[in-house]
């Protein structure tokens, strides 16, 4: 069942309705995952040991691969920085040499679940949506495969099933949406993390925790919670001991990406007034030309 049983007419019809609904509903939906209500995860990179158990749990929980635990114990993967793939919603990278005097830092990467996600803003069909619990979810049945989300994402997260010729999907961390929706159960990666460097809680509580950790151990942490303000805030937050640019994370301003594009995009069609005005003017102009010619 699903999109394969829809014909083109039905799909376009629904897309049109969704589009119309989106014009009026998109703004409240974007605001739903605000800082108070949504869940988040605090990643303490100073505690991460790079055991890759989160990758294993993610793979198992989301049925991405059938790889056994042993496959995730291979540490040679750290020799090269990795990105998320269609088979891996999350990857751990190592920054710094194991033989060096300074301990290497391991950084888990996955969808940051932005509060104002650029991918959702870019999605033409509303397949990617921010949810009230903090997750940014993807609905493959709506997706038409344009991959604008992959271009839009500032964290370069979404991957694509290029090897599925007929039913390719965009793939990215779902924040274990089903689990989190069941009474705030933690995502699979958080549950398995041996040193518990991933903490799952309400985002507002996590910011408090992060501040408390920084205050208690100023020698261990930089006084910055990555994701608190970056691009309007993300549900996943990072504590680091080194500048984020050394850890494969990019520095961003506080303005959400959609705020660069949406004023223009939405302004053109706001409440249908600009197009109606334009076409109205056209109609008046044509009428005037018509009447002139008639004379």
């Amino acid at each position: 069942m699903g999109i394969s049983t829809l014909d083109r007419r039905q799909f376009l019809c629904r897309a049109g309705v969704a589009g119309l609904a989106g014009m009026t509903l998109s703004e409240p939906a974007l605001a739903a995952a605000d800082e108070v209500g949504g869940y988040g995860v605090l990643v303490d990179t100073t505690e991460c040991i790079g055991c890759r158990k989160c990758e294993f749990a993610c793979s198992q929980s989301n049925k991405l691969t059938e790889l056994p635990l042993e496959a995730f114990e291979d540490r040679s993967v750290f020799d090269q920085p990795r990105r998320m793939t269609a088979d891996a919603y999350t990857v751990v990278n190592r920054y710094g040499d194991t033989a060096g005097a300074v301990k290497p830092t391991f950084v888990k990467a996955q969808c940051m679940h932005c509060l104002k996600p650029a991918c959702a803003s870019a999605c033409l069909v509303g397949a990617i949506r921010p949810q009230a619990n903090g997750a940014v979810t993807y609905d493959p049945w709506k997706c038409m495969g344009c991959r604008y989300c992959m271009v839009a994402c500032p964290f370069q997260v979404p991957a694509y099933e290029y090897d599925h010729a007929l039913t390719p999907k965009v793939s990215k961390c779902s924040f274990c949406f089903e689990r989190v929706s069941q009474g705030g159960k933690a995502p699979a990666c958080v549950d398995i993390c041996p040193p518990m460097c991933l903490t799952f809680a309400k985002r507002s509580e996590l910011l408090g925790l992060a501040r408390a950790k920084i205050k208690a151990h100023p020698e261990q942490y930089l006084d910055h919670v990555y994701g608190e303000h970056e691009l309007g805030g993300t549900s996943w937050l990072y504590l680091t001991s080194r500048p984020v640019t050394e850890l494969g994370l990019m520095e961003f301003g506080e303005k959400p990406i959609p705020e660069y594009t949406e004023p223009l995009q939405h302004g053109i069609f706001k409440h249908g007034v600009p197009p109606m005005l334009l076409f109205g003017l056209l109609a008046v102009a044509m009428k005037m030309f018509d009447s002139k010619e008639d004379k």
């Binding site: 505690e47 993390c193 040193p195 518990m196 460097c197 903490t199 809680a201």
Partner: peptide, 18 residues
């Protein structure tokens, strides 16, 4: 398990490992 009331105190698994 992690104590939701005290996020600063990791669960037993985290305590051992850390």
């Amino acid at each position: 398990t992690n104590d939701p009331g005290n996020l600063q105190r990791p669960g037993l698994k985290g305590a051992y490992h850390r």
